[in-house]
Every structure is written in C-alpha cells, then in structure tokens.
Design a protein around this nucleic acid. Structure first.
Length: 430
RNA sequence: UCCGGUAUAGCUCAGUUGGUUAGAGCAGCGGACUGUUAAUCCGCGUGUCCGAGGUUCGAGUCCUCGUACCGGAGCCA
C-alpha cells in the first residue's frame, strides 16, 4: 500500500492508500462519520462507516478531537458530494496522538487571540493559503532574477552604521560595540553590483520605527536588485517586469489559494505592463486640484499616496521626488537639480508603497556633501565612497517589500498575516 | 509618540436610568441520527466582570490613574 499526500489523491482512484496527518474537523451522523483530514498538502474528506471499520475503530473515531494526529487507511473514491471531488472510504484509523482542548475552534476568534496562538493558527485553511501564496511569490522572485542572470549576493545583517539615519535601527551589543540590524542591504548591494554586474539580495530587514499600522512590521523581507550600467528608466522597467512576473506566477499556480482568500482575481489580472508612470510634480498638481493641502516639496502622507494610487487600476510608478525628502545616495536629475532620479511603486486598493528605488549618485563630491547634510559620519562610508573611486559607473536598483506585495496580492486587511511569525511594535511572541 | 475606541465564561459577545441570584451562542462532555460541509436536535458546566484607588446604602455599570489590545496619524517597504 502506498502512502500518498492529499494533493495527489486524484491519481489513486480505486486504490487503497495510507495518509498521515491530522484531524481538521469531524462530524457524525449515527453510524457514518465525516472526518476532514489535513496533511499539510490539503484537506480531504474521509468517510468512516461503522459497518466497514467495525465497532472498535468506530468508537476510536468518535473520540478523535480537532488536530489529533492520525494515520488513515482507505480507498480513494470520486464523489461529487465531497469538497474537492474526492474522498476516502476509511478501512482503518490509527491514532498517533490525541489532542486535548485545541484552542482554535471552528468559530470566530479575535486577532489578538489568534496572534497569541500563531503557532497553531498556521494550520488553518486561510493562513495556509496565505503562506503558500507567499511561497509562490518568493519562488517567482528568485526565478525572475535567476533567469535574467542576476547573482544572489547576500548582504550582512549586523552592520556598523546606518544606511539612512539611525533613528529607525535596532541596536545590539556586539562584543562591547554597538552593531545595528540592517534596515536595508542597499549599500552593500552597490558593492556587489560592481562585482557581479547584476546582483540581488533577499533577506530580512529591521526597522525600529514605532509604526502601529496595518502596513508595518519591525522585521520584514526585502528583495533588492542592484544593476551596473543601468539608468532610472531601465530601473523602472526591471521593477515593472518583476511585478508583472510575480502576479502572473501567482495567478498561474495559486488560484485555489486566492479563492480560499476570497480575492478578486480580476483586479490582479489588470497588472500588466506598461505600468503607468507619473512624476512627483504631476502628482502634486493632481493633489492640489483635488483639494489636498500640499505643496511642492512635501512628502506624501498615507491619504495622498492612496489618492494617487486610486487613479489607477494597476500599480503606478511615481518618479523624480524632491531630493530633500529622499535618501542621500540617490542621484540628482541633471535636467532638474531639485529632484532625484528616484521612483516608488504604489500598489492599488490602498496597499501603499511596495517598491522604492533610484539611480544612484556617482559623483563622490556630491555624495560627501549629502552625507554631511544628513549628519552622517563620513568615516563609516569610506568603503561605500571607494565604489566611486574605483571604476564608478551609472547604476540603479530598488527594494521591494515582500510582505506588502503578499498583502496586496492576497487582498489582506493587515500585513501581520503575510509572514509566519509577525514582529510588530507590540508583539515578539510567539 | 499623538488622537479615538475596547477590556465580562476556554472563544465570540450581550448586560437598560447604578439595584440585590451574571447572560447567550460556540467549544467541551453525555445521548440521538447512514451524506455531513462552521451539520442538526436533546441534556450538562463554567466567572479575579483587566488592575489599583475613589464616589455611593449599593458599582460589571459612574470618576481617576495604570496596563493590554484594536483603529487612525506620523515614518517607511
């Protein structure tokens, strides 16, 4: 007899198989029982008939509780009445472990309670679907860069200095010195791009911002490509191609999961290139015309960002921001010194900024000046300045926040469900 | 950090103008039922009313402080 996984049972119709997993739910109607079985690959209805399994096994079945672990033996049959179209006619049930008082019942729960039980919540259908979409997105990202000859070069997590100011960094004791957890791999990415031409890094980032919103985590994953001999226009194109590829891959492989999440797939299907591009200056005009109290030079707040994004049915690229509101390493536009060659991509439906990128400043004097302006210590950036001393070339890159992309694609109301164990301002457990 | 809200059974919540004995559904346990989809039906139990102080003859209810959580803002991916 063969041990099979739930997602493959359709290949074994008429055969007797073994399934190893857990009880998702069980119901009884006299001498026939319905056990919804889960093995991590999917859910499957198992039929336990008293006359088939015998009195002893039927009594055992009656004692099974939610999330007890079981090994089921039975015949795979096709049946329209079963969710998914297939079910198991059980001939034997073996109890591995009896679960007592599983806290998450098949009824409503509050988010705080569920987050306290996150280690168990992961087993539920909805969380399972979200994390499978996340997995698909990660795979799509890696495949995209791999097929375009990018080399994965990891950036360090312990860093001695800040990339963009120190207020948002977590400090740790590093043998008597202060080390910070990386908030971005950006600066190291530039070194890698000069070594490998096309590079990306993909790992966790840490921000100590006291942000308590549905869009913020203190620990999140960011993918950051950096490309040598690349200007801002090409940079936008790379970001667009990556986004479109991610959406296509999820639509191709995870429709079932999107259905579980009740996601409006038609909205996602609109994410096709070319994505609209609009300058910061044009955004300000639109915002002023629509009654927002905003002046050229101000950064967008959340309402402004949402207003711009709502003008489009797909992600929109906003470019050329005032240099004052952007990071020191962004290159100034030679055609207009007041703005930098930076870009953000705003997701539709109010999901906010999912990508931020730029062409990088190559002029070492401008960089030194900007480092001073930001109040940063030049000594910490000498290695970074070396990249402008030895074979400096025009280069660009961007960062894409994985969790925000997952939230948008899944249509979630809060980012905390996009990651297995969310770290937010108020939570570090479980 | 600022603004607003909430805190009552294992879970989700109700609880009137302050009134004497604290309520429901679900989960759990027992029973009925051979096609259930969060099954249904019958029976059974459960409380530091978030904490401390105050007002009052009397506080789950009103006041003060604290704590936790939720929503929003700022900041950002």
């Amino acid at each position: 007899m063969k041990r099979v996984f739930v997602n493959k049972v359709s290949k074994y119709v008429g055969e007797k198989v073994i399934l190893k997993g857990w009880v998702y739910n069980s119901r009884r109607s006299g001498k026939i029982g319905f056990l919804t079985f889960r093995d991590g690959f999917g859910l499957l209805q198992c039929i336990v008939v008293k006359n088939d399994v015998g009195d002893e096994k039927f009594e055992l079945f009656k004692t099974l509780t939610q999330e007890s672990s079981v090994i089921i033996t039975g015949e795979v049959v096709k049946n329209e009445r079963a969710p998914g179209g297939f079910e198991i006619l059980v001939s034997d049930v073996e109890l591995i472990h009896l679960s007592k008082d599983y806290p998450i019942t098949p009824k409503e729960h509050g988010t705080d309670f569920l987050m306290n039980n996150r280690h168990l919540w992961l087993r539920s259908k909805r969380q399972h679907a979200i994390l499978r979409v996340r997995h698909q997105i990660v795979k799509a990202i890696r495949d995209f860069f791999d097929s375009n000859d990018f080399t994965l070069v990891d950036s360090p997590i312990f860093t001695p200095n800040a990339a963009e100011g120190t207020s948002t960094l977590f400090g740790t004791d590093y043998f008597g010195k202060t080390a910070y957890l990386a908030q971005t791999g950006q600066l190291y990415g530039e070194a890698s791009a000069m070594a490998f031409g096309r590079h990306y890094n993909f790992g966790p980032c840490f921000r100590a911002e006291k942000s308590k919103t549905r869009r913020h985590l203190t620990e999140f994953w960011m993918v950051e490509p950096e490309i040598a001999y690349c200007d801002i226009e090409e940079d936008m194109q790379w970001a667009e191609d990556l986004l479109v590829h991610i959406v296509n891959e999820v639509l191709e492989h995870r429709l079932e999961e999107l259905k579980v999440l009740d996601r409006d797939v038609d909205l996602l299907k609109k994410t096709k290139g070319p994505l609209p591009r609009i300058s910061y200056t044009d955004c300000i005009e639109i915002l002023q015309k629509d009654g927002f109290d905003i002046e050229w030079g101000d950064d967008f707040g959340s309402p402004e960002e949402t207003h711009i994004a709502e003008k489009y049915d797909r992600p929109v690229i906003v470019h050329r921001f005032p240099s004052k509101i952007k990071a020191f390493y962004m290159k100034r536009d030679p055609e207009d010194e007041k703005v930098v060659l930076g870009m953000d991509i705003l997701a539709p439906e109010g999901y906010g900024e999912i990508v931020g990128g730029s062409e990088r400043e190559t002029d070492i004097d401008v960089l030194i000046e900007r480092i001073e302006e930001e109040g940063l210590n030049q000594d910490d950036y000498e290695w970074f300045l070396d990249l402008r001393r030895f074979g400096s070339v025009p280069h660009s890159g961007f960062g894409m926040g994985l969790e925000r992309v997952v939230a948008w694609i899944c249509g979630l109301s809060h980012i905390r469900e996009t990651t297995p164990f969310a770290r937010t301002m108020g939570r570090i457990n479980p």
